[in-house]
Amino acid sequence: MKYAFYPGCVSKGGCPELYTSTTAVAQKLGLELVELKEAACTGAGVLNEKNPELADTLNARTFAMAERLGLPIMTICSTCQGVMTQTNHKLQSDKSYLAKVNSNLAGEGFEYKGGTLIKHLLWILVEDMGLEKLKTLVSRPLKGLKVAPFYGCYILRPSSVLGYDEHPARMTYIEQVVSILGGESVDYTGKTKCCGFPILTINERNSVAMVGDHTIEAKSKGADCMVTPCPLCHLNLDGYQPKASAQKGAKIDLPVLHLPQLIGLAMGFEPKALGLQRHIVSARGVIAKVAT
């Protein structure tokens, strides 16, 4: 299976371990990735508020690149996935708008015909590859590991645009993956809520309060760690957990793993090869639990 790989800004910036773990895991999964090196940032939803047509044009440019390769796009970030899916939906359901966007792209040698499929690694695992295949690759089952899924807003909502009408089970994909990997999912209300990252610089107190609420809730339900398909959620839930801990006056210490890191662990990769040492909240406890 071959995909046009859109790594997003964060896996090339603040979360290099996401890039490393993704490429490592993808190889073992048999996913051939052609990286879209010239693709621009999706705008993370922020560019859209200022200038929607500009943001849509940049994304259409990315879609056109994949279309030229004849490949579906693979994302590894809920936010990239959400922003791109929404743009694609907008372009596909309004032909005159698509034409307008294409006229913006004409000088750059791109034209988007409207046919690119965009899928997060999480969806690819379940829908394209199948969990049975993943199961065969598990060499170090996450036995006894309690994992709290954290989806990230953009991969969930608006559900009608993000394909949940056709794939209602997308609501439970992380849980399904965790279970195939031999772990146990922890259910808690925060799993579909906002991590607070988008307002981190704007209103840090509120943002950090969200981190605190979700990590504390997950922990109280017995989670050993969180896993997220969104590096922005990771940045906040992991990086700002110490601040959240101070704000809430509670010890939290809940490691937050990227999805490919969790998969990699179960596949037997060395924790270091997955960049697990790079987290602000140490993942040592998780590694120890899986090793035994």
Binding site: K12, G13, G14, C15, P16, E17, K37, E38, A39, A40, N51, E53, L54, T57, L58, R61, N104, L105, G107, E108, G239, Q277, R278, H279, I280
Partner: peptide, 27 residues
């Protein structure tokens, strides 16, 4: 400490020129 800092020198991506032109056109 954890090696989680993005590159201090933020280098343009390949294709950045194209992105810039689109910005200039639509801004």
């Amino acid at each position: 400490v954890k090696g989680k800092v993005p590159p201090i020198i933020h280098r343009p991506r390949p294709g950045a020129d194209s992105v810039k032109r689109i910005f200039e056109k639509l801004e």
